[in-house]
Write a protein that binds this DNA or RNA. Structure first.
Lengths: 195, 195
DNA sequence: GTCTATAGATGGATAGAC
DNA sequence: GTCTATCCATCTATAGAC
């Protein structure tokens, strides 16, 4: 962790973001100090300001980059298959993302309150765009009668909440394997739309 | 809001708790100052310490009292009906509680990270006890084959997450009435267990 | 690029007057 | 029961040395 004085632009920047992500996710944005982040990286607090104009921007960019990546990656893999296949793919993609990047997902979910008004609007639009990806799948299935859904919008929100909840309890090495969890949640999602 | 100096023990105590609840839910525990709470109540910060030993205890008691009430009220109304009826009752009870006491539910859900180790253990046990109430209903339905569930524990958690998510988007006066929301979520929950 | 030092603000909590 | 005043810790962010 500790590091001697010198030039390390290539590693310090990402290290700061990684430390901030981990600490924000664990303790909450407001409860984490810049000194704490710096200490985790092995620099002094002042050095952080070479990489971010302020703490708020650090939080905002973590959330924004995460959500943009989440959406872009999904769009790159969503194909025009039948709605049930697309839904299965979405469910497993979403939960798989939680397995590997749980802190990112958690942060984007928990720290909305600590964004400035302007940053909140940007992040909220991204969250809505991601939700719309699932909603499009459900709507497609309703149109061709492979799904039976009473309210597409509410079902979308309910399903996202259900899937995101996996981060509350899942830990690697526990009672269930990742594959088991994927199977169970896909089964629940499938039933929610009568597929 | 502002109030003259004098004795107001009967109203100041509850007013402090109400203000703290609202502010903690809106901005997060760590982001709210004791001065802010006091200002909302119409007293100075020092006066708060006549009613709570410290800020941490204020948070803890809000969460603890809410969860104890949530569990006690449910236990007082859960009867030994058939599992599908009991599940319907639970779903509507849980969401109904969100409608009327959204801040309490939100707080107990979001501020776990800001509890001291000891307080966390207490609150976590209460949360688990509430989860167990739903799990008992699902397990009963699995035993008598009115439900078809692949993993009772995971289904319990998934359902709680789904139901709790209603607080993210529901607002009175929106597109859907409370009754519509209850109906839609009950339908989703019913499908999750193939009832 | 990082450090030391510090300005300037704000935080939780307490003491003592009323 | 509440207020004023304040202690002391801590915070974000900046300035200037290296």
């Amino acid at each position: 962790m500790a590091r001697k004085t010198g030039s390390h632009a290539e590693i310090t920047g990402p290290a700061i973001r990684a430390a901030a992500l981990r600490l924000f996710a664990r303790s909450g944005y407001a409860a984490v100090s810049m000194r704490e982040i710096a200490s985790e990286v092995g620099v002094r607090a002042g050095a952080l300001y070479l990489y971010t104009p302020d703490k708020q921007t650090l939080l905002f960019e973590l959330m924004k980059d995460h959500l943009e990546g989440l959406i872009a990656e999904w769009r790159s893999m969503d194909v025009l298959g039948a709605p049930p296949e697309r839904l299965e793919k979405f469910v497993k993609y979403h939960i798989g993302y939680h397995f590997d990047r749980g802190d990112d997902v958690f942060l984007a979910y928990m720290e909305l309150r600590n964004l400035s008004e302007e940053n909140f609007a940007t992040v909220e639009a991204l969250r809505r765009a991601y939700e719309d990806e699932l909603e499009a799948v459900l709507a497609a299935g309703q149109s061709d009668n492979t799904f039976e859904i009473s309210d597409v919008r509410v079902t979308t929100r309910a399903m996202i909440a259900m899937l995101t909840g996996v981060h509350v309890w899942y830990r690697d090495g526990g009672r269930l394997s990742r594959d088991s969890v994927l199977r169970i949640y896909w089964d629940l999602a499938r039933r929610m739309v009568n597929a």
